[in-house]
Amino acid sequence: MENAVSVSQLVKNFVLKKREGMRWTESEVKAVDGITLSIEKGQSVAFIGPNGAGKSTTIKMLTGILHPTSGEASVLGCVPWKERTRLAKRIGVVFGQRSQLWYHLPPRDTFELLSKIYEIKQDVFKSRRDMLIERFQLSEFLDTPVRKLSLGQRMRAEVACSLLHGPEVIFLDEPTIGLDVIARQELRDLISEWNRENGVTVFLTSHDAGDIQHVARRVIVINHGRVVLDDRVSRVRRQYLREKVLSVKYADTPESISLDGVKTLKESGHAFKFEVDTLAVPIEKVMSEIMRIGSVVDITIEDPPLEEVIAHIYSAPPTEFGDDAPDDEPDENESKSS
């Protein structure tokens, strides 16, 4: 299959100027340090890593905003930093922290303007807009000024904006940032649905481990500007994302818990922190055991922070590493809950 994105040995160095006393010293920072990857058309890829790992810098180079220090890249057959405007017609970009919606006006006006910016033919524009309105359920707030919308509604409109000109590849930079659990899930579903049904290639960055499991089929983890893992989501989940962290507060001292796959991380008074290996023991079973041993006042379940996952990857390298894992075999873990 043809590649939508292919990157080879991409490097981006920044010169950092620091002042020490009266002198300025220059030092080079490698934001992206030799990334090589290729993404087939229609794939959905999560590009994750902690803050400052080089995710945004890579996206900026792939969309033509930044020129690389060295290396090559091709997006839909264009070299992004050389053919930026030509490429811009064929890709869509969503920055989670930057809006293209007009704050004081309803989303409808922004759509209208975008049709002029991208020079979309009126009939094409209208039919595509109406389809997006239906799919993203925008009709209820299409004529409400953006400043009155909830963040979830805004992000839905935001993503719809970036799809209006029918891009073949869509880059999403931290699209779920700041969203609550439900809005986050809605947006993930919409993105993966769009990917499946319209064949749009999705390139999503996030520092939230949850985004990986729900949107993408393939995950690329980067840290310090390098790819540390490139694999199918299903395998990554089995190997690195099987742990959940449970914080429990009891009314009084509970009985001790003894269950395979549950580790007590911290204990102070009536509060406990457990780490659960969801492959060894279903979370449901752990929950009922926790309820059984004492009277629960408060409980939260979290994914381990991405930094920990990456530390895990370093300490336990993947068994089969590399690009040899095609995406055509079914994702056997898709339906199982974690």
Binding site: K60, A88, F95, R98, Y118
Partner: peptide, 16 residues
């Protein structure tokens, strides 16, 4: 750094 958003459109940056 707000130029970024303007660089993503298929238009000449300055007039746009």
């Amino acid at each position: 750094g707000e130029l970024d958003s303007w660089l993503l459109y298929p238009r000449a940056v300055l007039p746009h």
